[in-house]
């Protein structure tokens, strides 16, 4: 097993007062593709934000890519992490093209005082081609469909050449065909690069086949962690998505 890129022991995170993550322990090793599932409000996105040094842990020990959190230079860790968030609405008049957005992936690593040059342009072309966006390269970023926007975000993460990918429901709010395209790109990327990835979803339909390990989250805690086949046992899923004190489902899992 490779070295741990994510090494978390007993971490908690508070947002606007109350704790939203409690006593999280999670280790992710180089080359692993880990899925994180759970009902709405389980803390999946918060966990990714803490790993991406966007939220500071209140307690516990958190080491990401060998750097102890919290750190006031969290941006240095983020340069080494490719983060693909959920689809956002973007101003259709925004002065930025798809190509510029993808090329920006290299901006963080490049650092201050360096201009985006030929090498970054070449990487952007490659990523645009890999994600099937070449014909949309000059289109304003605010004029894309949800699926195209997510492919742009993945292309930007590819240009970043990260050591760790974080996918936060990348197929949410996009049509089934776009979902298939996005999953295909993510799986190809893992196959080609052997990249380490954490993939959050609440829809088990959209869990990539390359995912071999599943973390089940409930009420801000890691509830179960193990091989995908074991974690997808119907009884376990029923219990995961059951409301506390009630019997109805919460944030529907879909079928595996």
């Amino acid at each position: 097993m490779g070295e741990p890129l994510v090494d978390i022991h007993g971490a908690s995170v508070a947002r606007h007062g109350p704790l939203v993550l409690r006593d999280i322990t999670l280790h992710v090793h180089r080359g692993e593709f880990v899925g994180i599932i759970g009902p709405n409000g389980a803390g999946k996105t918060t966990l990714l934000m803490m790993i991406n040094a966007l939220l500071a842990p209140a307690h516990g020990q958190v080491d990401i890519l060998g750097v102890r959190l919290p750190t006031w230079r969290g941006y240095r860790i983020r340069r080494r992490i490719g983060y693909v968030a959920q689809v956002e609405s973007v101003d259709p008049r925004l002065p930025m093209t798809v190509r510029e957005t993808v090329q920006l992936g290299a901006a963080g690593r490049l650092g201050w005082f360096h201009r985006l040059g030929r090498e970054e342009a070449r990487k952007a072309d490659e990523a645009l081609n890999q994600t099937g966006l070449t014909r949309l390269a000059q289109r304003p970023i605010g004029q894309l469909s949800g699926g195209e926007y997510q492919r742009t975000a993945i292309a930007r993460a590819l240009v970043q050449s990260p050591e760790l990918f974080l996918f936060d429901e990348p197929t949410a709010s996009v049509d089934p065909r776009a979902q298939r395209d996005i999953l295909h790109i993510i799986q190809e990327m893992h196959l080609d690069r052997g990249a380490t990835a954490l993939y959050v979803t609440h829809d088990l339909h959209t869990l990539p086949e390359r995912c071999t390990r599943l973390v089940l989250m409930k009420e801000g805690r890691v509830w179960r962690d193990g091989p995908k086949e074991e974690m997808l046992a119907p009884a376990l899923l029923r219990e995961l998505y059951e409301r506390a004190g009630g019997g109805s489902s919460n944030g529907g899992p879909g079928e595996p």
């Binding site: 983020r78 992490i81 973007v90 925004l94 510029e100 957005t101 920006l104 901006a107 963080g108 201050w112």
Partner: peptide
Amino acid sequence: VFNKEIHATACHRNVAAAIGI
């Protein structure tokens, strides 16, 4: 001098933060 940082932050502050700006 800081064209790429300002462009990224002005257009998409969350993305700029996520890529390490």
